[in-house]
Amino acid sequence: MIFVIIMACEIGFWVLIALGLAARYVLRRPRLGAVLLILTPVVDLVLLAAAALDLRGGGEASFAHALAAIYLGFSVAYGHRMVRWADVRFAHRFAGGPAPVKLYGRRYAAACWADVLRTALALGIAAGILWLLMLVAADGTDITALEGVFPILGVVFAIELIWAISYTVAPKKAPAHATP
C-alpha cells in the first residue's frame, strides 16, 4: 500500500509542477501558478504521514517505507532545483525565455560538486526520516528492512562522489558544434 502512495505522491508532485507552470506561462496567471508550485511540499507531508501512520498502526516495515524516506529526502534537497529546471524549459517553450544552458568543463564539474552537497543533504534527511520511522513503528515491529537501507545510502553517496571526482579529473567536453 505504501508503494502505491509513493507513486501517487510522485505523480502528484509532477502534476502540481506542470499545472503551476501551465498556469504561469500558458494561462498567464502567475499567482495561481505560484500557489500550485507552493503546494508541492504538501505532497511530501502526505507521504510522510502515510508512512508513519502505517508503521504506527502495526504495518510491516518494508523497503517501501524506506523508499518513502529516500523520496522525501531527495524531494526536499532537489525539489527547488527540479522546479527551476522545469521552469526554464517551460519559459523557453511557452514564454520566449532563453534556452536552457548546457554545462561543460569546469562549470559542469562545479555543478557535480553542488550535487554532491545536495545528495548529502538528501541522504541526511532520508536517514533522519528512517530513524523517525523506526521510532514511531509499533512495538514489536520488525524494522530490519529500514535498518538495512543505511548502507545503501552510503553507496548512493559514494556514487555521487565518484561522479563528481571523475568530471573534475576528466571534464565534460563541449561538442564541436557548441559555442564556448
Results as ranks from 00 to 15, higher is better:
residue 46 V to E: 10
residue 9 C to T: 15
residue 131 W to S: 00
residue 57 G to K: 02
residue 31 R to M: 15
residue 14 W to F: 11
residue 54 D to W: 08
residue 95 A to H: 06
residue 15 V to A: 08
residue 105 G to Y: 14
residue 51 A to L: 12
residue 37 L to C: 02
residue 111 A to W: 14
residue 168 T to W: 10
residue 94 F to N: 06
residue 26 V to A: 12
residue 121 L to P: 04
residue 166 S to E: 12
residue 160 E to A: 04
residue 146 L to V: 08
residue 83 V to C: 04
residue 8 A to V: 13
residue 98 P to E: 15
residue 5 I to G: 02
residue 167 Y to V: 10
residue 143 I to F: 08
residue 96 G to P: 13
residue 13 F to T: 09
residue 155 V to S: 00
residue 110 A to F: 07
residue 86 A to I: 11
residue 80 H to N: 00
residue 156 V to Y: 06
residue 69 A to E: 04
residue 23 A to E: 14
residue 53 L to F: 15
residue 153 L to W: 13
residue 146 L to I: 09
residue 86 A to T: 08
residue 72 L to G: 00
residue 92 H to L: 13
residue 13 F to R: 01
residue 128 G to I: 11
residue 96 G to R: 01
residue 72 L to W: 03
residue 43 V to Q: 00
residue 12 G to A: 10
residue 135 L to W: 08
residue 94 F to R: 02
residue 19 L to Y: 15
residue 75 S to K: 06
residue 175 P to F: 05
residue 55 L to P: 03
residue 66 A to T: 09
residue 72 L to P: 02
residue 80 H to A: 06
residue 76 V to N: 00
residue 130 L to V: 06
residue 4 V to C: 07
residue 99 A to Y: 07
residue 144 T to Y: 11
residue 158 A to Q: 01
residue 12 G to Q: 06
residue 7 M to A: 04
residue 113 W to H: 04
residue 39 L to Y: 13
residue 103 L to F: 15
residue 77 A to Q: 02
residue 6 I to H: 01
residue 152 I to M: 01
residue 139 D to C: 06
residue 62 S to C: 13
residue 28 R to Q: 13
residue 127 A to V: 10
residue 168 T to H: 03
residue 40 T to V: 15
residue 79 G to W: 13
residue 55 L to F: 09
residue 7 M to G: 02
residue 32 L to P: 05
residue 179 T to M: 05
residue 16 L to R: 00
residue 124 G to H: 05
residue 161 L to H: 03
residue 74 F to M: 07
residue 115 D to Y: 06
residue 44 D to N: 01
residue 146 L to T: 03
residue 178 A to N: 00
residue 53 L to N: 10
residue 105 G to T: 12
residue 51 A to I: 15
residue 161 L to D: 04
residue 132 L to D: 07
residue 163 W to N: 03
residue 54 D to Q: 05
residue 107 R to S: 09
residue 68 A to I: 12
residue 94 F to V: 14
residue 89 R to G: 15
residue 148 G to T: 08
residue 88 V to S: 06
residue 10 E to P: 05
residue 42 V to P: 05
residue 9 C to R: 02
residue 19 L to E: 14
residue 118 R to G: 12
residue 153 L to F: 09
residue 100 P to D: 08
residue 64 A to N: 04
residue 89 R to N: 14
residue 101 V to I: 07
